[in-house]
Nucleic acid binder design. Structure first.
Lengths: 138, 138
DNA sequence: GCGAAGTTGACAATCATTTTCACCCCCACT
DNA sequence: AGTGGGGGTGAAAATGATTGTCAACTTCGC
């Protein structure tokens, strides 16, 4: 049975106050800062449970760290993540889904899953770095 | 300067004889079996260099291990991988590329990169597991 | 309130990958 | 073909995220 403990509540709360993908370690630190005495192992376990329950989404950063985020929509979707500030947009892509199925089927593959994640620079960050260019450029 | 050493040749050769994605450790073992005395660190370093040079593709398995494969086409492409036997098909998806760019642009994101990988069960493996069903079913 | 069973947390263990560092060997030059 | 030097190598230690261990603790039904 899943019990509702102080720690699990804290992790769930922390996830709702955060908009970006965060690593277990970041969340652990955040919780510690907020005064919650919680063990790192517990944060990992809780995040894993939440991920399995489909409550949070997981993806892996370029350096292999797992990052978690509470998503609005429970159904299958993808993410557009700013690689500078971490801002995340949930997107669905029916076109991609059908494309994936079609491609896979045409090669005789079945039981398809796919990973599709987009990374880019959001408008705010582009403006920020753009200003640098302008400043240095003239 | 990049020197051509016995070890690098061996790794490159091993990669050309293999069709699936393989981990550094698998390749190391393979090379050892073939009688090449080569260190694990060297395999890692070589694969990394090859990946940076765009000669091999890298992707990460579900459990976070990096796997490498020498690909036919040097240009950007994606993969359809059998999760049972590892058989890999290179695919390109102009539709996905433009979809990604369009989605990203509509959210004000620029400088887009994307990861798109498909996993499934190839015809051969589906037949194999299907035979089990038939056998047990009739 | 009680007690059983799920939870916790500090720490050890795991495991892929990276770094270290002293020795090695490829290659341009002679 | 010999030589020098600088990149390359490898064994082992370091790293770092994640997982396992296990005794003590908390939650929840009764």
């Amino acid at each position: 049975m899943q019990r509702m403990t102080r720690q699990r509540t804290a992790v769930a709360d922390a996830l709702s106050t955060v908009e970006d993908f965060r690593s277990a370690q970041q969340l652990h630190e955040l919780l510690r800062d907020q005064g919650h005495g919680i063990g790192l192992a517990t944060v990992y376990r809780t995040l894993q449970a939440l991920a399995e329950a489909g409550v949070v989404d997981v993806l892996r950063t370029a350096d292999g760290e797992s990052v978690y985020r509470r998503c609005e929509r429970r159904e299958h979707h993808h993410h557009l993540v700013c690689r500078t500030c971490g801002a995340t947009v949930e997107i669905d892509g029916p076109a991609v889904e059908s494309w994936a199925d079609r491609i896979a089927a045409s090669h005789g593959f079945t039981d398809i899953t796919h990973t599709v994640e987009l990374f880019g620079t959001c408008a705010a960050c582009a403006a920020a770095s753009g200003q640098d260019d302008v400043a240095t450029g003239g």
